[in-house]
Simulated scan of single mutants.
Amino acid sequence: MTHILNFVDAINRGVANVLRWFVVAMVLVQFAIVIGRYVFGVNSIWVQESVLYLHAGLFMLAAGYTLLIDKHVRVDIFYAKVQPEIRRRIDIFGHLFLLFPSMLALLWWSWPSVRNSWKILEGPMSVGGIEAVFLLKSLIPAFCSLLLLQSFASLLRLFTHKDEA
């Protein structure tokens, strides 16, 4: 069981290691856009959309890693002030009744759009843009899958390591 949990963690850590370079690329491309536009008077919709693609990839694909390192958004009304066992129960509830259903619903409702986008190899959002909206839409099931995998691993840890909560 530990091997499976470590494997899921390794997937999200590996994805995060790749995504770190998305941040660097975003900054460099955005800098180039500003210099190109204001210094040289040159503009490219394709280059502008590349920042959008990098940004979407970064935030959609890093969600599993964010959950892994426990830096996700938490509505902390009383969570920090309660005992570890109650925190553990809140986490279990969150995984089972909030995260799992929402990710499964998102997968279910977005899949036809993603599938159709791949069928027609959906083109750019704007004239002159990146001809790969199908890749952008593919981030939705990837986001759901990475987050569900990490949630499953976290949930298993919550059930097997009760004393470490």
Rank of each mutant, 00 (worst) to 15 (best):
Leu96Tyr: 03
Val114His: 08
Ser113Ile: 13
Ile86Lys: 12
Leu106Pro: 02
Met103Leu: 15
Glu85Cys: 02
Val82Ile: 12
Ser113Cys: 08
Trp111Asn: 01
Leu98His: 05
Phe93Gln: 05
Leu99Phe: 15
Ile92Trp: 06
Arg89Val: 04
Trp118Ser: 11
Ile120Glu: 08
Ala105His: 01
Phe100Cys: 03
Ser102Asp: 00
Ser102Pro: 00
Gly123Lys: 00
Trp111His: 07
Leu96Asn: 07
Trp108His: 07
Ser102Ala: 06
Ile120Asp: 02
Val114Leu: 07
Pro112Glu: 05
Arg88Tyr: 03
Leu98Met: 13
Asp91Ala: 08
Lys119Gln: 13
Leu104Met: 10
Arg88Val: 11
Glu85Phe: 07
Phe93Glu: 01
Glu85Pro: 02
Ser117Lys: 10
Leu98Ile: 15
Trp118Ala: 10
Gly123Trp: 03
Gln83Ala: 14
Leu98Phe: 15
Phe100Gln: 00
Ile90Leu: 12
His95Asp: 07
Lys119Leu: 13
Trp118Gly: 10
Arg87Lys: 15
Ser113Gln: 07
Trp111Ile: 03
Leu99Ile: 15
Arg88Lys: 12
Pro84Met: 03
Trp118Cys: 10
Leu107Ser: 11
Arg115Asp: 10
Pro124Met: 05
Gly123Ser: 11
Leu99Glu: 01
Leu96Pro: 02
Ala105Tyr: 14
Phe100Arg: 03
Leu99Ala: 14
Ile90Pro: 01
Ser117Ile: 10
Phe100Ile: 12
Met103Asp: 00
Leu107Trp: 04
Gln83Trp: 09
Trp111Val: 03
Arg115Thr: 09
Trp111Tyr: 13
Trp111Ser: 06
Leu106Thr: 10
Phe97Pro: 04
Ser110Phe: 06
Pro112Asn: 03
Pro101Phe: 06
Ile92Arg: 06
Lys119Tyr: 11
Ile120Val: 14
His95Met: 12
Gly123Ala: 05
